[in-house]
Design a protein around this nucleic acid. Sequence first.
DNA 1: CTGTTAGCGCCTTCAA
DNA 2: TTGAAGGCGCTAACAG
Lengths: 301, 301
Amino acid sequence: MEAAVEKLGYVPDAAASALASNRTDVIGLLIPSLTNSVFSDVLRGMYDEAENHPFSIQIGNFRYRPLTEEMLIGKFLRQKPAGLIVAGLDQTDISKGMLRAADCPVIQIMDYDASAEGDMIGFSHYEAGAAAARHLRDRGYRRIGFLGARMDPRTQRRLAGFNDALNGTDDPQQSKRVIVTSTASSVSLGAELLRELLVRAPDSDAIFCNNDDLAIGALLEAQRRGIRIPEDFGICGFNDLEMSKQMNPGLTSIATPRYEIGRLAISTIVDALSSDKASDPTRIDLGFTVVMRGSSARAVD
Amino acid sequence: MEAAVEKLGYVPDAAASALASNRTDVIGLLIPSLTNSVFSDVLRGMYDEAENHPFSIQIGNFRYRPLTEEMLIGKFLRQKPAGLIVAGLDQTDISKGMLRAADCPVIQIMDYDASAEGDMIGFSHYEAGAAAARHLRDRGYRRIGFLGARMDPRTQRRLAGFNDALNGTDDPQQSKRVIVTSTASSVSLGAELLRELLVRAPDSDAIFCNNDDLAIGALLEAQRRGIRIPEDFGICGFNDLEMSKQMNPGLTSIATPRYEIGRLAISTIVDALSSDKASDPTRIDLGFTVVMRGSSARAVD
DNA sequence: CTGTTAGCGCCTTCAA
DNA sequence: TTGAAGGCGCTAACAG
Protein backbone atom coordinates (compact mmCIF):
# COMPACT_ATOMS: atom_id res chain seq x y z
CA MET A 1 0.00 0.00 0.00
CA GLU A 2 2.80 2.37 0.83
CA ALA A 3 4.37 1.46 -2.47
CA ALA A 4 1.14 2.24 -4.28
CA VAL A 5 0.96 5.53 -2.48
CA GLU A 6 4.46 6.29 -3.67
CA LYS A 7 3.57 5.45 -7.24
CA LEU A 8 0.49 7.60 -7.31
CA GLY A 9 2.57 10.56 -6.29
CA TYR A 10 0.74 11.14 -3.09
CA VAL A 11 1.91 14.13 -1.11
CA PRO A 12 0.46 15.04 2.24
CA ASP A 13 -1.36 18.33 2.53
CA ALA A 14 0.40 20.56 4.99
CA ALA A 15 -2.68 22.60 5.82
CA ALA A 16 -4.87 19.59 6.55
CA SER A 17 -2.13 18.10 8.64
CA ALA A 18 -1.75 21.32 10.57
CA LEU A 19 -5.47 21.62 11.15
CA ALA A 20 -5.85 18.09 12.39
CA SER A 21 -2.72 17.91 14.52
CA ASN A 22 -2.66 21.48 15.68
CA ARG A 23 0.96 21.70 14.69
CA THR A 24 3.03 22.79 11.71
CA ASP A 25 6.62 22.08 10.69
CA VAL A 26 7.55 25.73 10.72
CA ILE A 27 10.11 27.04 13.16
CA GLY A 28 9.62 30.72 13.79
CA LEU A 29 12.61 32.99 14.22
CA LEU A 30 12.36 36.52 15.59
CA ILE A 31 15.30 38.82 15.03
CA PRO A 32 15.69 42.55 15.59
CA SER A 33 17.34 43.34 12.28
CA LEU A 34 18.24 42.03 8.89
CA THR A 35 20.88 44.67 8.31
CA ASN A 36 23.06 43.41 11.09
CA SER A 37 25.62 41.09 9.55
CA VAL A 38 25.56 39.10 12.76
CA PHE A 39 22.34 37.42 11.88
CA SER A 40 23.47 36.10 8.55
CA ASP A 41 25.87 33.77 10.33
CA VAL A 42 23.21 32.70 12.77
CA LEU A 43 20.88 32.03 9.88
CA ARG A 44 23.51 30.03 8.10
CA GLY A 45 23.94 27.80 11.10
CA MET A 46 20.22 27.31 11.36
CA TYR A 47 19.77 26.40 7.72
CA ASP A 48 22.73 24.05 7.80
CA GLU A 49 21.20 22.24 10.73
CA ALA A 50 17.63 22.37 9.46
CA GLU A 51 18.64 20.80 6.18
CA ASN A 52 18.52 17.36 7.77
CA HIS A 53 15.05 17.87 9.16
CA PRO A 54 11.63 18.51 7.70
CA PHE A 55 11.35 21.98 9.17
CA SER A 56 10.97 25.30 7.46
CA ILE A 57 12.18 28.52 8.99
CA GLN A 58 10.07 31.62 8.98
CA ILE A 59 11.73 34.87 9.93
CA GLY A 60 10.10 37.79 11.64
CA ASN A 61 11.97 41.08 11.78
CA PHE A 62 10.93 43.23 14.71
CA ARG A 63 13.29 46.09 13.94
CA TYR A 64 14.46 46.54 17.50
CA ARG A 65 10.90 47.45 18.48
CA PRO A 66 9.64 45.51 21.50
CA LEU A 67 6.02 46.09 20.58
CA THR A 68 6.54 44.76 17.10
CA GLU A 69 8.23 41.76 18.65
CA GLU A 70 5.21 41.29 20.88
CA MET A 71 2.90 41.39 17.91
CA LEU A 72 5.03 38.95 15.95
CA ILE A 73 5.27 36.50 18.83
CA GLY A 74 1.51 36.46 18.93
CA LYS A 75 1.24 36.06 15.19
CA PHE A 76 3.77 33.24 15.07
CA LEU A 77 2.32 31.40 18.03
CA ARG A 78 -1.07 31.46 16.36
CA GLN A 79 0.41 29.50 13.48
CA LYS A 80 1.14 26.59 15.82
CA PRO A 81 4.84 26.54 15.10
CA ALA A 82 7.03 23.52 15.74
CA GLY A 83 9.25 25.82 17.77
CA LEU A 84 10.11 29.44 18.31
CA ILE A 85 13.52 31.08 18.44
CA VAL A 86 13.80 34.62 19.72
CA ALA A 87 16.87 36.82 19.80
CA GLY A 88 17.66 38.24 23.18
CA LEU A 89 16.38 38.02 26.71
CA ASP A 90 14.70 41.39 26.87
CA GLN A 91 11.15 40.90 25.72
CA THR A 92 8.27 42.86 27.16
CA ASP A 93 6.32 41.29 30.02
CA ILE A 94 3.49 40.45 27.67
CA SER A 95 5.93 38.78 25.30
CA LYS A 96 7.46 36.83 28.15
CA GLY A 97 4.03 35.67 29.22
CA MET A 98 3.21 34.45 25.74
CA LEU A 99 6.51 32.63 25.45
CA ARG A 100 6.05 30.99 28.83
CA ALA A 101 2.58 29.83 27.90
CA ALA A 102 3.57 28.64 24.41
CA ASP A 103 3.01 24.95 23.86
CA CYS A 104 6.09 24.51 21.72
CA PRO A 105 9.81 24.65 22.44
CA VAL A 106 11.04 28.22 22.83
CA ILE A 107 14.71 29.16 22.76
CA GLN A 108 16.26 32.52 23.38
CA ILE A 109 19.50 33.04 21.52
CA MET A 110 22.46 35.42 21.32
CA ASP A 111 22.55 36.26 24.99
CA TYR A 112 23.27 34.41 28.20
CA ASP A 113 22.30 35.51 31.66
CA ALA A 114 22.14 32.97 34.45
CA SER A 115 19.52 35.00 36.25
CA ALA A 116 17.10 35.12 33.32
CA GLU A 117 14.40 32.54 32.90
CA GLY A 118 13.78 30.12 30.07
CA ASP A 119 15.99 28.23 27.64
CA MET A 120 18.86 30.15 26.15
CA ILE A 121 21.92 29.68 23.96
CA GLY A 122 24.41 32.50 23.82
CA PHE A 123 27.16 34.18 25.76
CA SER A 124 27.52 37.01 28.22
CA HIS A 125 27.73 40.38 26.52
CA TYR A 126 28.65 41.98 29.81
CA GLU A 127 31.71 39.76 30.07
CA ALA A 128 32.59 40.39 26.45
CA GLY A 129 32.60 44.13 27.01
CA ALA A 130 34.73 43.67 30.10
CA ALA A 131 37.16 41.43 28.23
CA ALA A 132 37.60 44.03 25.51
CA ALA A 133 38.34 46.72 28.06
CA ARG A 134 40.83 44.52 29.85
CA HIS A 135 42.54 43.55 26.64
CA LEU A 136 43.10 47.15 25.61
CA ARG A 137 44.22 48.11 29.09
CA ASP A 138 46.64 45.19 29.15
CA ARG A 139 48.19 46.43 25.93
CA GLY A 140 48.96 49.68 27.68
CA TYR A 141 46.15 51.86 26.41
CA ARG A 142 44.82 54.18 29.08
CA ARG A 143 42.24 56.49 27.54
CA ILE A 144 39.88 54.07 25.92
CA GLY A 145 36.72 55.12 24.11
CA PHE A 146 33.60 53.22 23.11
CA LEU A 147 31.83 53.55 19.78
CA GLY A 148 28.31 52.24 19.59
CA ALA A 149 25.41 52.28 17.15
CA ARG A 150 21.83 51.34 17.84
CA MET A 151 22.16 50.59 21.52
CA ASP A 152 20.08 47.46 21.89
CA PRO A 153 20.07 45.64 25.24
CA ARG A 154 23.03 43.44 24.34
CA THR A 155 25.10 46.40 23.24
CA GLN A 156 24.24 48.16 26.46
CA ARG A 157 25.40 45.18 28.43
CA ARG A 158 28.70 45.21 26.58
CA LEU A 159 29.04 48.87 27.43
CA ALA A 160 28.26 48.17 31.08
CA GLY A 161 30.92 45.46 31.21
CA PHE A 162 33.35 47.78 29.46
CA ASN A 163 32.71 50.62 31.90
CA ASP A 164 32.91 48.44 34.96
CA ALA A 165 36.18 46.91 33.85
CA LEU A 166 37.67 50.36 33.34
CA ASN A 167 36.67 51.62 36.76
CA GLY A 168 39.83 52.23 38.59
CA THR A 169 41.57 53.34 35.43
CA ASP A 170 41.04 56.75 37.03
CA ASP A 171 40.51 58.38 33.68
CA PRO A 172 38.31 61.33 34.64
CA GLN A 173 37.23 61.67 31.04
CA GLN A 174 36.02 58.15 30.59
CA SER A 175 32.37 59.07 30.23
CA LYS A 176 33.26 61.59 27.53
CA ARG A 177 34.75 58.81 25.50
CA VAL A 178 31.51 56.91 25.05
CA ILE A 179 30.08 57.85 21.66
CA VAL A 180 26.81 56.23 20.79
CA THR A 181 23.99 56.87 18.37
CA SER A 182 20.62 55.42 17.62
CA THR A 183 21.21 54.96 13.91
CA ALA A 184 21.99 51.63 12.33
CA SER A 185 25.51 50.36 12.37
CA SER A 186 27.63 50.68 9.25
CA VAL A 187 31.22 51.10 8.17
CA SER A 188 30.62 54.74 7.35
CA LEU A 189 29.17 55.31 10.77
CA GLY A 190 32.34 53.92 12.34
CA ALA A 191 34.34 56.56 10.54
CA GLU A 192 31.92 59.24 11.67
CA LEU A 193 31.93 58.18 15.30
CA LEU A 194 35.69 58.13 15.39
CA ARG A 195 35.76 61.69 14.10
CA GLU A 196 33.35 62.66 16.83
CA LEU A 197 35.41 60.97 19.51
CA LEU A 198 38.50 62.78 18.37
CA VAL A 199 36.65 66.08 18.70
CA ARG A 200 35.14 65.36 22.08
CA ALA A 201 38.16 63.65 23.61
CA PRO A 202 41.17 64.18 21.33
CA ASP A 203 43.59 62.48 23.69
CA SER A 204 41.85 59.09 23.41
CA ASP A 205 44.33 56.34 22.63
CA ALA A 206 42.08 53.37 21.89
CA ILE A 207 38.51 52.32 21.17
CA PHE A 208 36.28 49.35 21.67
CA CYS A 209 33.64 49.23 18.96
CA ASN A 210 30.15 47.88 19.16
CA ASN A 211 30.90 45.60 16.26
CA ASP A 212 33.35 45.03 13.47
CA ASP A 213 31.53 47.21 10.96
CA LEU A 214 32.14 50.23 13.14
CA ALA A 215 35.66 49.09 13.94
CA ILE A 216 36.58 48.70 10.29
CA GLY A 217 35.18 52.13 9.52
CA ALA A 218 37.13 53.61 12.40
CA LEU A 219 40.32 51.84 11.34
CA LEU A 220 40.03 53.14 7.79
CA GLU A 221 39.25 56.66 9.02
CA ALA A 222 42.20 56.59 11.39
CA GLN A 223 44.44 55.66 8.49
CA ARG A 224 43.10 58.52 6.41
CA ARG A 225 44.08 60.80 9.26
CA GLY A 226 47.54 59.38 9.50
CA ILE A 227 47.00 57.96 12.96
CA ARG A 228 49.41 55.09 13.54
CA ILE A 229 47.78 51.84 14.53
CA PRO A 230 48.53 50.25 16.94
CA GLU A 231 51.36 52.51 18.08
CA ASP A 232 49.32 55.64 18.73
CA PHE A 233 45.85 54.20 18.77
CA GLY A 234 44.42 50.74 19.48
CA ILE A 235 41.22 49.30 18.10
CA CYS A 236 39.16 46.33 19.21
CA GLY A 237 36.02 45.29 17.36
CA PHE A 238 33.30 42.84 18.16
CA ASN A 239 32.08 39.73 16.32
CA ASP A 240 35.20 38.95 14.33
CA LEU A 241 33.74 39.10 10.86
CA GLU A 242 35.53 37.21 8.16
CA MET A 243 37.08 40.33 6.67
CA SER A 244 38.48 41.69 9.91
CA LYS A 245 41.60 39.57 9.77
CA GLN A 246 42.30 40.84 6.26
CA MET A 247 42.52 44.47 7.25
CA ASN A 248 45.94 46.13 7.38
CA PRO A 249 46.74 45.86 10.20
CA GLY A 250 44.45 43.00 11.15
CA LEU A 251 41.58 44.02 13.37
CA THR A 252 41.58 42.75 16.92
CA SER A 253 38.10 41.53 17.67
CA ILE A 254 35.97 39.39 19.90
CA ALA A 255 34.98 36.21 18.13
CA THR A 256 31.40 35.21 18.89
CA PRO A 257 29.85 31.80 18.25
CA ARG A 258 27.15 33.01 15.90
CA TYR A 259 27.08 30.04 13.57
CA GLU A 260 27.11 27.61 16.47
CA ILE A 261 24.26 29.43 18.15
CA GLY A 262 22.19 28.96 15.01
CA ARG A 263 22.97 25.29 14.73
CA LEU A 264 22.32 24.57 18.35
CA ALA A 265 19.07 26.48 18.38
CA ILE A 266 17.65 24.25 15.69
CA SER A 267 19.04 21.00 17.04
CA THR A 268 17.72 21.83 20.50
CA ILE A 269 14.24 22.33 19.13
CA VAL A 270 14.45 19.16 17.08
CA ASP A 271 15.55 17.20 20.14
CA ALA A 272 12.82 18.64 22.29
CA LEU A 273 10.28 17.67 19.66
CA SER A 274 11.48 14.13 19.20
CA SER A 275 11.92 13.12 22.81
CA ASP A 276 8.37 13.27 24.09
CA LYS A 277 9.48 13.31 27.69
CA ALA A 278 10.03 16.84 28.92
CA SER A 279 13.71 17.41 28.31
CA ASP A 280 16.05 19.26 30.62
CA PRO A 281 16.17 23.00 30.34
CA THR A 282 18.70 24.20 27.78
CA ARG A 283 20.92 26.93 29.14
CA ILE A 284 24.15 27.10 27.24
CA ASP A 285 26.86 29.71 27.60
CA LEU A 286 29.04 29.30 24.53
CA GLY A 287 31.48 32.01 25.51
CA PHE A 288 33.59 34.16 23.22
CA THR A 289 37.25 34.65 22.36
CA VAL A 290 39.41 37.74 22.22
CA VAL A 291 41.40 37.51 18.99
CA MET A 292 44.34 39.84 19.07
CA ARG A 293 45.63 41.14 15.77
CA GLY A 294 47.67 44.09 14.65
CA SER A 295 45.21 46.81 15.52
CA SER A 296 45.94 46.45 19.21
CA ALA A 297 49.24 44.58 19.17
CA ARG A 298 51.30 47.29 20.71
CA ALA A 299 54.50 46.30 22.45
CA VAL A 300 54.02 46.61 26.19
CA ASP A 301 56.93 47.51 28.36
CA MET B 1 -21.29 40.84 16.29
CA GLU B 2 -17.91 41.85 14.98
CA ALA B 3 -17.42 43.80 18.17
CA ALA B 4 -18.29 40.74 20.20
CA VAL B 5 -15.86 38.74 18.17
CA GLU B 6 -13.20 41.31 18.97
CA LYS B 7 -14.00 41.18 22.67
CA LEU B 8 -13.81 37.45 22.88
CA GLY B 9 -10.34 37.59 21.47
CA TYR B 10 -11.18 35.61 18.40
CA VAL B 11 -8.27 34.87 16.16
CA PRO B 12 -8.63 33.00 12.91
CA ASP B 13 -6.86 29.69 12.61
CA ALA B 14 -4.32 29.83 9.83
CA ALA B 15 -4.34 26.09 9.19
CA ALA B 16 -8.10 25.85 8.87
CA SER B 17 -8.12 28.83 6.60
CA ALA B 18 -5.43 27.31 4.45
CA LEU B 19 -7.23 24.01 4.25
CA ALA B 20 -10.53 25.54 3.25
CA SER B 21 -9.22 28.13 0.84
CA ASN B 22 -6.31 26.18 -0.55
CA ARG B 23 -4.09 29.17 0.04
CA THR B 24 -1.75 30.47 2.72
CA ASP B 25 -0.32 33.90 3.41
CA VAL B 26 3.23 32.69 3.06
CA ILE B 27 5.43 33.99 0.27
CA GLY B 28 8.19 31.53 -0.52
CA LEU B 29 11.64 32.75 -1.41
CA LEU B 30 14.31 30.56 -2.94
CA ILE B 31 17.88 31.78 -2.83
CA PRO B 32 21.14 30.04 -3.65
CA SER B 33 23.04 31.17 -0.58
CA LEU B 34 22.79 32.84 2.75
CA THR B 35 26.47 33.64 2.87
CA ASN B 36 26.30 35.97 -0.04
CA SER B 37 25.93 39.46 1.34
CA VAL B 38 23.89 40.31 -1.71
CA PHE B 39 20.83 38.61 -0.40
CA SER B 40 20.72 40.46 2.87
CA ASP B 41 19.87 43.63 0.98
CA VAL B 42 17.27 41.85 -1.10
CA LEU B 43 15.76 40.44 2.07
CA ARG B 44 15.71 43.84 3.67
CA GLY B 45 13.75 45.24 0.77
CA MET B 46 11.32 42.38 0.95
CA TYR B 47 10.71 42.72 4.65
CA ASP B 48 10.34 46.47 4.40
CA GLU B 49 7.68 46.02 1.76
CA ALA B 50 5.99 43.05 3.41
CA GLU B 51 5.58 44.93 6.66
CA ASN B 52 2.47 46.61 5.28
CA HIS B 53 0.89 43.35 4.24
CA PRO B 54 -0.27 40.24 6.03
CA PHE B 55 2.31 38.02 4.40
CA SER B 56 5.06 36.00 5.96
CA ILE B 57 8.24 35.15 4.10
CA GLN B 58 9.69 31.70 4.17
CA ILE B 59 13.19 31.26 2.84
CA GLY B 60 14.57 28.19 1.14
CA ASN B 61 18.32 27.95 0.63
CA PHE B 62 19.23 25.73 -2.29
CA ARG B 63 23.00 26.20 -1.96
CA TYR B 64 23.60 26.71 -5.65
CA ARG B 65 22.34 23.18 -6.29
CA PRO B 66 19.71 23.01 -9.04
CA LEU B 67 18.33 19.73 -7.77
CA THR B 68 17.89 21.09 -4.30
CA GLU B 69 16.12 24.04 -5.84
CA GLU B 70 13.86 21.67 -7.70
CA MET B 71 13.02 19.84 -4.52
CA LEU B 72 12.35 23.06 -2.65
CA ILE B 73 10.13 24.45 -5.40
CA GLY B 74 8.05 21.31 -5.09
CA LYS B 75 7.97 21.53 -1.33
CA PHE B 76 7.00 25.19 -1.33
CA LEU B 77 4.36 24.81 -4.00
CA ARG B 78 2.76 22.05 -1.98
CA GLN B 79 2.24 24.51 0.83
CA LYS B 80 -0.06 26.56 -1.39
CA PRO B 81 1.98 29.74 -1.06
CA ALA B 82 0.55 33.18 -1.75
CA GLY B 83 3.46 33.66 -4.13
CA LEU B 84 6.89 32.40 -4.98
CA ILE B 85 10.08 34.33 -5.58
CA VAL B 86 13.05 32.55 -7.08
CA ALA B 87 16.52 33.92 -7.61
CA GLY B 88 17.78 33.58 -11.14
CA LEU B 89 16.52 32.45 -14.50
CA ASP B 90 18.40 29.20 -14.67
CA GLN B 91 16.21 26.55 -13.13
CA THR B 92 16.13 22.99 -14.38
CA ASP B 93 13.46 22.06 -16.89
CA ILE B 94 11.48 20.30 -14.21
CA SER B 95 11.66 23.38 -12.01
CA LYS B 96 10.56 25.55 -14.90
CA GLY B 97 7.63 23.27 -15.52
CA MET B 98 6.54 23.45 -11.91
CA LEU B 99 6.84 27.22 -11.87
CA ARG B 100 4.84 27.55 -15.08
CA ALA B 101 2.10 25.33 -13.71
CA ALA B 102 2.01 27.00 -10.29
CA ASP B 103 -1.30 28.59 -9.46
CA CYS B 104 0.23 31.52 -7.65
CA PRO B 105 2.27 34.50 -8.77
CA VAL B 106 5.88 33.56 -9.48
CA ILE B 107 8.65 36.12 -9.87
CA GLN B 108 12.23 35.55 -10.86
CA ILE B 109 14.63 38.07 -9.39
CA MET B 110 18.23 39.24 -9.67
CA ASP B 111 18.58 38.66 -13.36
CA TYR B 112 17.07 40.10 -16.51
CA ASP B 113 17.07 38.50 -19.91
CA ALA B 114 14.57 39.60 -22.53
CA SER B 115 14.65 36.18 -24.13
CA ALA B 116 13.76 34.27 -20.98
CA GLU B 117 10.18 33.45 -20.10
CA GLY B 118 8.15 34.43 -17.07
CA ASP B 119 8.02 37.43 -14.80
CA MET B 120 11.35 38.87 -13.74
CA ILE B 121 12.85 41.80 -11.89
CA GLY B 122 16.56 42.33 -12.18
CA PHE B 123 19.23 43.59 -14.48
CA SER B 124 21.54 42.21 -17.15
CA HIS B 125 24.63 40.63 -15.70
CA TYR B 126 26.12 40.34 -19.15
CA GLU B 127 25.88 44.09 -19.60
CA ALA B 128 27.27 44.68 -16.14
CA GLY B 129 30.35 42.61 -16.91
CA ALA B 130 30.79 44.44 -20.19
CA ALA B 131 30.43 47.80 -18.47
CA ALA B 132 33.14 46.90 -15.96
CA ALA B 133 35.51 45.89 -18.74
CA ARG B 134 34.83 49.06 -20.66
CA HIS B 135 35.29 51.20 -17.60
CA LEU B 136 38.71 49.75 -16.86
CA ARG B 137 39.74 49.95 -20.49
CA ASP B 138 38.61 53.57 -20.63
CA ARG B 139 40.84 54.35 -17.68
CA GLY B 140 43.78 53.10 -19.67
CA TYR B 141 44.20 49.64 -18.25
CA ARG B 142 45.13 47.10 -20.89
CA ARG B 143 45.81 43.76 -19.21
CA ILE B 144 42.68 43.23 -17.21
CA GLY B 145 42.04 40.13 -15.13
CA PHE B 146 38.88 38.63 -13.70
CA LEU B 147 38.56 37.18 -10.20
CA GLY B 148 35.56 34.98 -9.55
CA ALA B 149 34.29 32.69 -6.83
CA ARG B 150 31.50 30.18 -7.07
CA MET B 151 30.63 30.67 -10.72
CA ASP B 152 26.86 30.63 -10.66
CA PRO B 153 25.00 31.43 -13.88
CA ARG B 154 24.86 35.15 -13.20
CA THR B 155 28.56 35.31 -12.50
CA GLN B 156 29.22 33.45 -15.69
CA ARG B 157 27.15 35.93 -17.61
CA ARG B 158 29.18 38.76 -16.14
CA LEU B 159 32.32 36.99 -17.23
CA ALA B 160 30.90 36.52 -20.73
CA GLY B 161 30.09 40.21 -20.99
CA PHE B 162 33.52 41.05 -19.66
CA ASN B 163 35.26 38.82 -22.16
CA ASP B 164 33.23 40.01 -25.12
CA ALA B 165 33.86 43.64 -24.28
CA LEU B 166 37.61 43.00 -24.15
CA ASN B 167 37.72 41.27 -27.49
CA GLY B 168 39.76 43.47 -29.69
CA THR B 169 41.96 44.49 -26.80
CA ASP B 170 44.34 42.09 -28.51
CA ASP B 171 45.78 40.94 -25.23
CA PRO B 172 46.94 37.43 -26.13
CA GLN B 173 47.03 36.54 -22.47
CA GLN B 174 43.48 37.50 -21.67
CA SER B 175 42.32 33.99 -20.99
CA LYS B 176 45.17 33.48 -18.54
CA ARG B 177 43.90 36.37 -16.51
CA VAL B 178 40.62 34.74 -15.62
CA ILE B 179 40.98 33.24 -12.15
CA VAL B 180 37.94 31.46 -10.81
CA THR B 181 37.19 28.91 -8.16
CA SER B 182 34.25 26.95 -6.96
CA THR B 183 34.58 27.90 -3.32
CA ALA B 184 32.40 30.48 -1.64
CA SER B 185 33.26 34.10 -1.99
CA SER B 186 35.01 35.87 0.87
CA VAL B 187 37.42 38.68 1.52
CA SER B 188 40.22 36.23 2.20
CA LEU B 189 39.54 34.51 -1.08
CA GLY B 190 39.93 37.82 -2.90
CA ALA B 191 43.43 38.13 -1.49
CA GLU B 192 44.20 34.58 -2.49
CA LEU B 193 42.93 34.95 -6.04
CA LEU B 194 44.93 38.11 -6.54
CA ARG B 195 48.08 36.28 -5.48
CA GLU B 196 47.27 33.58 -7.97
CA LEU B 197 46.68 36.06 -10.76
CA LEU B 198 50.01 37.71 -10.08
CA VAL B 199 51.70 34.33 -10.39
CA ARG B 200 49.91 33.29 -13.54
CA ALA B 201 49.98 36.66 -15.28
CA PRO B 202 52.29 39.00 -13.39
CA ASP B 203 51.95 41.81 -15.89
CA SER B 204 48.21 42.25 -15.23
CA ASP B 205 47.35 45.87 -14.57
CA ALA B 206 43.74 45.68 -13.41
CA ILE B 207 41.00 43.33 -12.26
CA PHE B 208 37.26 43.09 -12.33
CA CYS B 209 36.03 41.11 -9.34
CA ASN B 210 32.98 38.92 -9.09
CA ASN B 211 31.81 40.97 -6.15
CA ASP B 212 32.97 43.49 -3.61
CA ASP B 213 34.08 40.92 -1.05
CA LEU B 214 36.67 39.65 -3.46
CA ALA B 215 37.56 43.14 -4.58
CA ILE B 216 38.13 44.34 -1.03
CA GLY B 217 40.30 41.33 -0.31
CA ALA B 218 42.28 41.96 -3.47
CA LEU B 219 42.67 45.65 -2.65
CA LEU B 220 43.98 44.89 0.82
CA GLU B 221 46.33 42.24 -0.53
CA ALA B 222 47.63 44.60 -3.19
CA GLN B 223 48.39 47.14 -0.51
CA ARG B 224 50.25 44.57 1.54
CA ARG B 225 52.40 43.97 -1.52
CA GLY B 226 53.06 47.63 -2.04
CA ILE B 227 51.20 47.76 -5.34
CA ARG B 228 50.07 51.30 -6.01
CA ILE B 229 46.36 51.66 -6.65
CA PRO B 230 45.18 53.03 -9.01
CA GLU B 231 48.49 54.08 -10.59
CA ASP B 232 49.91 50.62 -11.19
CA PHE B 233 46.81 48.54 -10.77
CA GLY B 234 43.10 49.21 -11.11
CA ILE B 235 40.29 47.41 -9.31
CA CYS B 236 36.59 47.27 -10.03
CA GLY B 237 34.21 45.36 -7.77
CA PHE B 238 30.60 44.39 -8.13
CA ASN B 239 27.55 45.20 -6.00
CA ASP B 240 28.82 48.35 -4.31
CA LEU B 241 28.53 47.25 -0.72
CA GLU B 242 28.24 49.93 1.88
CA MET B 243 31.83 49.56 3.01
CA SER B 244 33.37 49.80 -0.44
CA LYS B 245 33.31 53.57 -0.53
CA GLN B 246 35.14 53.65 2.80
CA MET B 247 38.17 51.78 1.58
CA ASN B 248 41.41 53.71 0.99
CA PRO B 249 41.30 54.34 -1.87
CA GLY B 250 37.58 53.98 -2.39
CA LEU B 251 36.62 50.90 -4.35
CA THR B 252 35.18 51.39 -7.81
CA SER B 253 32.19 49.14 -8.10
CA ILE B 254 29.00 48.41 -9.95
CA ALA B 255 26.00 49.43 -7.90
CA THR B 256 23.15 46.96 -8.22
CA PRO B 257 19.54 47.59 -7.20
CA ARG B 258 19.32 44.80 -4.65
CA TYR B 259 17.05 46.50 -2.15
CA GLU B 260 14.74 47.69 -4.88
CA ILE B 261 14.53 44.22 -6.36
CA GLY B 262 13.36 42.92 -2.99
CA ARG B 263 10.75 45.61 -2.56
CA LEU B 264 9.40 45.25 -6.06
CA ALA B 265 9.24 41.49 -5.85
CA ILE B 266 6.90 41.66 -2.88
CA SER B 267 4.80 44.51 -4.19
CA THR B 268 4.40 42.77 -7.52
CA ILE B 269 3.07 39.67 -5.83
CA VAL B 270 0.77 41.70 -3.63
CA ASP B 271 -0.60 43.51 -6.65
CA ALA B 272 -1.12 40.31 -8.59
CA LEU B 273 -3.01 38.87 -5.66
CA SER B 274 -5.28 41.84 -5.11
CA SER B 275 -6.28 42.54 -8.69
CA ASP B 276 -8.19 39.42 -9.59
CA LYS B 277 -7.92 40.09 -13.29
CA ALA B 278 -4.80 38.60 -14.75
CA SER B 279 -2.30 41.41 -14.60
CA ASP B 280 0.26 42.23 -17.25
CA PRO B 281 3.49 40.29 -17.19
CA THR B 282 6.12 41.90 -14.99
CA ARG B 283 9.45 42.17 -16.73
CA ILE B 284 11.54 44.89 -15.21
CA ASP B 285 15.15 45.70 -16.03
CA LEU B 286 16.32 47.92 -13.17
CA GLY B 287 19.80 48.40 -14.59
CA PHE B 288 22.98 49.13 -12.68
CA THR B 289 25.47 51.94 -12.25
CA VAL B 290 29.25 52.04 -12.53
CA VAL B 291 30.48 54.02 -9.53
CA MET B 292 34.04 55.17 -10.07
CA ARG B 293 36.16 55.70 -7.00
CA GLY B 294 39.86 55.86 -6.28
CA SER B 295 40.68 52.25 -7.05
CA SER B 296 40.37 52.85 -10.77
CA ALA B 297 40.62 56.64 -10.97
CA ARG B 298 43.83 56.76 -12.88
CA ALA B 299 44.56 59.87 -14.91
CA VAL B 300 44.15 59.09 -18.59
CA ASP B 301 46.21 60.92 -21.14
C1' DC C 1 -27.58 40.17 -0.27
C1' DT C 2 -27.49 37.40 3.94
C1' DG C 3 -27.53 32.83 6.32
C1' DT C 4 -26.68 28.12 6.15
C1' DT C 5 -24.03 23.98 5.20
C1' DA C 6 -21.01 20.79 3.01
C1' DG C 7 -16.67 19.66 2.64
C1' DC C 8 -11.17 20.75 2.62
C1' DG C 9 -7.50 16.19 4.03
C1' DC C 10 -5.51 14.71 7.76
C1' DC C 11 -5.02 12.95 12.64
C1' DT C 12 -6.70 10.52 16.45
C1' DT C 13 -9.68 8.12 18.82
C1' DC C 14 -12.38 4.20 19.39
C1' DA C 15 -14.14 -0.23 17.99
C1' DA C 16 -13.24 -4.54 16.17
C1' DT D 1 -2.88 -4.82 15.56
C1' DT D 2 -5.67 -2.86 12.01
C1' DG D 3 -9.56 -0.19 10.22
C1' DA D 4 -13.39 3.11 10.23
C1' DA D 5 -15.20 7.58 11.34
C1' DG D 6 -15.61 12.00 13.56
C1' DG D 7 -14.02 16.24 13.83
C1' DC D 8 -10.25 20.25 13.49
C1' DG D 9 -12.22 25.72 11.98
C1' DC D 10 -12.71 27.83 8.13
C1' DT D 11 -14.32 29.00 3.17
C1' DA D 12 -17.22 29.04 -0.61
C1' DA D 13 -21.04 27.63 -2.77
C1' DC D 14 -25.74 27.69 -2.66
C1' DA D 15 -30.34 28.47 -1.05
C1' DG D 16 -33.51 31.58 0.67
